[in-house]
């Protein structure tokens, strides 16, 4: 299991990485943690002519709080995020979701930017990104742009990222102090990826009515999605067990859910409902 030949270059800045990408004429790929790209290259499912290693670019690292948002450098590893005190204090649910990605060795290498850029629908970060109104900062031919997580994912392994572009950071909205949040995952017993993962964040006003709710779902759908049908049904309502059960019936409505070798469409739709209901119950009633 050896990848086919490629040239390897290390970029020391975002500008250099972009230049190297451009020079590669569409045949180059950025290498972050390598924990999605290298397995594919070992199977020769992808054969880039050159790899541009961005792991030494200092400006892509670190976690900071800025204007009510947690800004995470694209090259921040899962392990660094999990151990970051600001992240732990500000968005525990993000830390919780990242904490169960793969295993410790994977978390020591894999990165926040790489996870989203790869666009794997079974990854654990997209659900949290959607539930936390994440914004993905991208530098490319068109200069700097910010893409909302909800617009970012297009199809399995396909994102809005242009050819010569690089994710520089991802920012997540810090939930209000009175909000509650959860990430519930049913993992594939062999791969550990999410068969389903539901990330929910909600808060209530003084009268006990839902004033903010986001439900991000990864795993079951070809594209990670926000369960808008459920969100809308709960906004402004006073959550009861009966209501939560009823609205969770619509948890699969916004997804693009199909069958594969591991799970049928019917089963996936069922999982979406059951896990959404469990997530909401945990938020509202525990």
């Amino acid at each position: 299991m050896i990848p086919s030949e490629f040239a390897y270059k290390r970029a020391n800045s975002v500008a250099e990485a972009l230049q190297l990408l451009k020079d590669s004429g569409g045949e180059g790929k950025l290498l972050a943690g390598g924990h999605s790209l290298l397995p594919l290259m070992k199977f020769r499912l992808t054969n880039p002519q050159s790899l541009i290693d961005i792991s030494k670019i200092e400006e892509l690292k670190g976690v900071k709080l800025e204007g009510g948002r947690l800004v995470v450098g694209a090259m921040t590893t899962y392990d660094e995020l999990v151990k970051d005190e600001t992240a732990q204090q500000q968005i525990p649910v993000l830390v919780k979701a990242v904490r169960i990605i793969g295993d410790q060795q994977v978390r020591n290498r894999g990165t926040i930017g790489g996870n989203l850029a790869h666009g794997d629908p079974a990854a654990d970060l997209p659900g949290a990104a959607l539930a936390l109104d994440a914004e993905i900062e991208v530098h490319g031919d068109l200069g700097k742009e910010t893409i909302a997580a909800e617009d970012f994912f297009i199809a399995p392994l396909v994102t809005m990222l242009g050819e010569n572009s690089i994710v520089t950071s991802v920012s997540f909205a810090v939930p209000s102090p009175n909000s509650r949040s959860v990430y519930l995952k049913y993992e594939h017993p062999a791969s550990g990826y999410a068969v389903i993962g539901v990330c929910a964040v909600a808060s209530m006003d003084d009268s006990g009515k839902v004033e903010h709710i986001r439900i991000g779902i990864n795993g079951v759908s070809d594209v990670p999605y926000r369960a808008r049908a459920v969100e809308e049904a709960l906004m402004g309502a006073e959550p009861t067990e009966a209501l939560v059960k009823e609205v969770s019936e619509n948890a699969a409505d916004d997804g693009e859910i199909g069958s594969d070798l591991f799970a049928s469409e019917k089963y996936r739709r069922h999982l979406a409902k059951v896990y959404t209901e469990r997530a909401l119950k945990e938020i509202f009633f525990s």
């Binding site: 390897y8 792991s55 290498r109």
Partner: peptide, 11 residues
Amino acid sequence: SVKSCTTLAVQ
């Protein structure tokens, strides 16, 4: 700790 099968020597 890292998996050396998923890391290039050049990395």
